[in-house]
Amino acid sequence: MFKRILIPVDAGVQDDMQKLLSSALELTQGWDCTCHVVTVIPDVGMPIVGSYMSKDFVDEARSAVATQLADAVASSGLVAEHKVLKGTVYDSVITYADQIDADLIIIGAHQPELRDYLLGSNAARVVRHSKRSVLVLRD
């Protein structure tokens, strides 16, 4: 069926991340597939934003998030490669899915708020713009 599955998570929301990883484990059991779990940290490279942060801020943040992500994947029981990406969430997810030639993206979604109707959530943008199959999991 699906051979390469991408699972983007928000490492900042532990409960949602664990639920998504548990659901992905349950869904993929019995599939002969490789899972890739990613989280995205925002790019603070803009001069006006980056000037307020130390030179090591991005590296330290990436290292801390990588440890957090590795721990979450390990505790979920899901066998997966994991990686921290940097940039805009939906764009980074779509680009990485193309890089690994993912067959499926499993993404979590929250209950839409008013701002999501105006701007769109990251999950909605991934669904709209990805060339890959996307499975959206809700609570």
Rank of each mutant, 00 (worst) to 15 (best):
G45H: 03
A102V: 02
I105R: 00
A124S: 13
R62V: 09
W31A: 14
L25R: 13
V134C: 10
T67A: 14
K86Q: 14
D91E: 15
D56I: 06
S63W: 04
I41M: 13
G120F: 00
T95H: 15
D43C: 05
R125V: 05
L118A: 09
G108N: 08
V44W: 11
F2R: 03
L6K: 06
L25G: 02
L118V: 15
V73T: 11
F2L: 03
V93M: 01
Q99F: 10
P47Y: 02
A74M: 04
D139I: 02
K86F: 02
H82R: 09
E26D: 12
M46P: 02
W31E: 12
D139N: 10
D10K: 05
V38G: 07
Q99G: 01
G12T: 08
K83G: 01
V44F: 11
K83Y: 04
S22R: 09
A123R: 00
G87F: 07
V44T: 10
V13S: 08
L27S: 09
I94G: 00
S92Q: 03
V65P: 11
Q68G: 07
V93F: 05
K86R: 15
A72L: 08
D71I: 10
V127H: 00
L85V: 01
S75E: 15
D59P: 03
D59K: 12
A80I: 01
L135D: 00
S51H: 12
I100N: 06
Y96V: 08
Q18N: 14
Q68T: 07
Q18I: 10
C33S: 14
L27P: 05
L21C: 09
I106N: 01
M17T: 15
E81I: 04
D16Y: 07
K19T: 10
I105L: 13
L114D: 01
G12H: 02
K86T: 15
V13E: 15
V84H: 00
G30N: 01
P112I: 04
E60A: 12
H129R: 14
G120K: 00
N122G: 02
L20C: 13
G12S: 13
D101M: 06
R132F: 05
R138I: 04
L114A: 15
T39I: 06
F57W: 15
L114C: 04
A61G: 10
I7D: 00
G30I: 04
I5T: 05
H36E: 12
L20I: 10
D101A: 12
D15V: 12
S92R: 02
Y96M: 11
V73I: 01
V49N: 04
D98G: 15
F57K: 06
A124K: 04
A123F: 03
L21S: 05
S51N: 10
V44S: 09
D103S: 11
V37Q: 09
V73K: 08
L69K: 12
A124T: 14
A102Q: 07
W31Q: 12
F2H: 06
L27Y: 11
L69M: 10
I94Q: 10
D56H: 12
S121L: 00
Q68W: 04
E26R: 06
V79Q: 11
R4P: 04
V40P: 00
